[in-house]
Design a binder for these strands. Structure first.
Length: 501
RNA sequence: UCCAGCGUGGCUCAAUGGUAGAGCGGGUGACUGUUAAUCACUAGGUUACAGGUUCGAGUCCUGUCGCUGGAGCCA
């Protein structure tokens, strides 16, 4: 498409006084008789454009254009205090590519179900755009981190013959008459590549058939997994720390505008610093049992009750204000805010109601159990930086994790828990590199070693200490963006019972 | 799989068991500085579905389906 002086909205302010051409979509149009205001977006940003009746062709061209009509606009750029953003395009000519009518997503509030059914259009909204840009930054920063350290990208297969972990969580499919499964990790293959190239990573989709309907789960998500020869648990702890610091710093450097669009508390991200707190599983259990923690949880409970009182105060103020408002849509806006406050109160109340049970669970937590979401939340909320928990009981972890030489009850693994209660974003381990120990462990799990001969070969031919971890992209994005639900972190989320669009 | 909550115009929501309504969005018209513009007029409904109770059901009861959140499992 031939255009002259093509320009993007994001750098409009560098073209003051010039005649430029913008291509994009109409987000909204307001009219005041002889002047029309076009809110215009082109994928980089949004700006206000105006056209006056003194330009009859351009003025008429916008007639009948609904929200999301596609347009090419030419006009002059000028400073304008009355325009949001301070810059405005005075339109000279309008080319309408397509007149859109009755765009389903209005600028009012919508329910989640409706938005999810219109996910293909929902992506056009500013908030979703901001999340997708941050997702891109997280992925770019993650790859950059490993690339700069001499890692080689290895693509592991998505069709896989069996499970690395529990088989019940895999999607089974028919592979020319034989059962096959969608990958839930590239790890076993990655280990072979680490023995070939030393430092490797994979980045791809992974699939879990878990029937989880929560704000933290997808059935299809993306994971980046490094795997390194000649490393032990302590090296992995350090690597995961440097890795997360790099990703967070990169987002803070490049995506301030997006974090602001999302209303993210940037301070919480800025306060993250090395060294991250490190606890062994046993220390974490001790922490759960400690009276200091219980006292702190009691304090949190009291604070939450104060918070409820505060929100209720705010609520009654709003309810008073609403009676003085006459415009119907403003009343409705107030009602929406009131609704939100009531939701907040309900959530806090639920948290308060469960808190005694949480404290009790923490007190009575038994060594040997895996941490549930509640324990993870309690632990990670004690720190401002991500928390590294290592050396879990062997029974609750996968067969390939290296047995702890100092304590055969535990393995040399690590989980990294994001702050603010976002839970596990990294899971990994040093791998069992001794053939006999690994075989014994597989027998313990009732696994047939036969299909794993290729994997066991790594322990026969030049075995070395090695390990790696996996970072869930969506959980990381969810945490960095401060989102309530993981479904907004991926363009087309796959959830239990949801495949379209 | 289990527990809880919710299904009313395209969207967001109202409606003591008694005539189904508002705002937004759509359409028509007015307005040269709008910021979810404003104002006037207008079209739009088998209240998720199937039974039941009742003189009368959007509202009460039973079942089905769908959605949402949580548990378990996990990144």
């Amino acid at each position: 498409m031939k255009t002259t002086n093509l320009c993007f909205v994001s750098d409009l302010s560098q073209h003051l006084g010039e005649t430029v051409c913008l291509r994009g979509w109409m987000r909204a149009m307001r009219s005041s008789g002889k002047i029309r205001f076009v809110e215009f977006r082109d994928g980089t940003s949004t700006c206000q454009c105006t056209v006056e009746a003194s330009k009859p062709d351009a003025f008429a061209a916008l007639e009948g254009c609904g929200q999301e009509s596609s347009l090419t606009l030419t006009g002059t750029v000028r400073e304008e205090a009355r325009s949001p953003g301070g810059v405005e395009l005075s339109i000279e000519t309008v080319e309408v590519h397509q007149q859109a009518m009755e765009y389903p997503i209005s600028r009012k509030e919508h329910g989640v179900d409706f938005l999810m059914q219109h996910r293909h259009l929902w992506l056009r909204s500013p908030r979703q755009g901001a999340i997708l840009r941050i997702r891109h930054r997280v992925i770019t920063a993650a790859r950059e981190f490993f690339d700069q350290r001499g890692f080689t990208l290895i693509d592991t297969p998505i069709f896989q013959p069996g499970a690395a972990e529990g088989a019940g969580t895999l999607f089974e499919l028919d592979y020319f008459g034989s059962p096959a499964y969608l990958a839930q990790t590239g790890q076993l293959y990655l280990e072979t590549a680490a023995m070939a190239l030393g430092k490797v990573y994979c980045f791809g989709p992974t699939f879990r058939a878990e029937k989880s309907k929560t704000r933290r789960h997808l059935t299809e998500f993306w994971m980046i997994e490094p795997e390194i020869a000649f490393v032990e648990l302590e090296d992995l702890q350090e690597l995961s720390e440097e890795f997360l610091l790099h990703v967070v710093a990169s987002v803070l450097t490049h995506q301030q505008a997006e974090l602001e669009e999302l209303g993210r508390d940037v301070g919480a991200l800025e306060r993250i610093q090395a060294p991250f707190p490190r606890l062994t599983y046993s220390e974490a259990v001790e922490l759960l049992h400690s009276p200091e923690l219980h006292a702190k949880l009691e304090t949190e409970l009291a604070e939450a009750q104060d918070a409820v009182a505060q929100v209720k105060e705010e609520l009654s103020q709003k309810e008073q204000q609403v009676s003085q408002v006459t415009k119907a849509w403003k009343v409705e806006k107030f009602n929406q805010e009131i609704q939100e406050l009531q939701d907040q109160i309900r959530e806090l109340d639920r948290w308060i109601a469960h808190q005694p049970a949480h404290i009790e669970d923490a007190k009575t937590f038994q060594w040997g159990k895996d941490f549930g979401g509640d324990e993870e939340t309690i632990l990670s909320r004690q720190f401002e930086s991500p928390l590294i928990v290592s050396e879990y009981p062997r029974e609750v972890k996968a067969f390939y994790m290296k047995q702890n030489p100092d304590d055969p009850r535990t393995v040399r693994n690590l989980d990294v828990l994001a702050p603010e209660g976002y839970g596990e974003i990294i899971g990994g381990s040093q791998r069992e590199d001794d053939l006999d120990t690994l075989l014994a462990r597989m027998r313990e799990e009732g696994m047939d070693p036969e299909p794993y001969q290729w994997y066991l070969d790594l322990r026969r031919y030049g075995s070395v200490p090695h390990g790696g971890f996996g970072l869930g992209i969506e959980r990381t994005v969810s945490w960095i963006c401060g989102l309530k639900h993981i479904r907004e972190t991926i363009p087309f989320p796959r959830l239990m019972g949801k495949m379209t669009p």
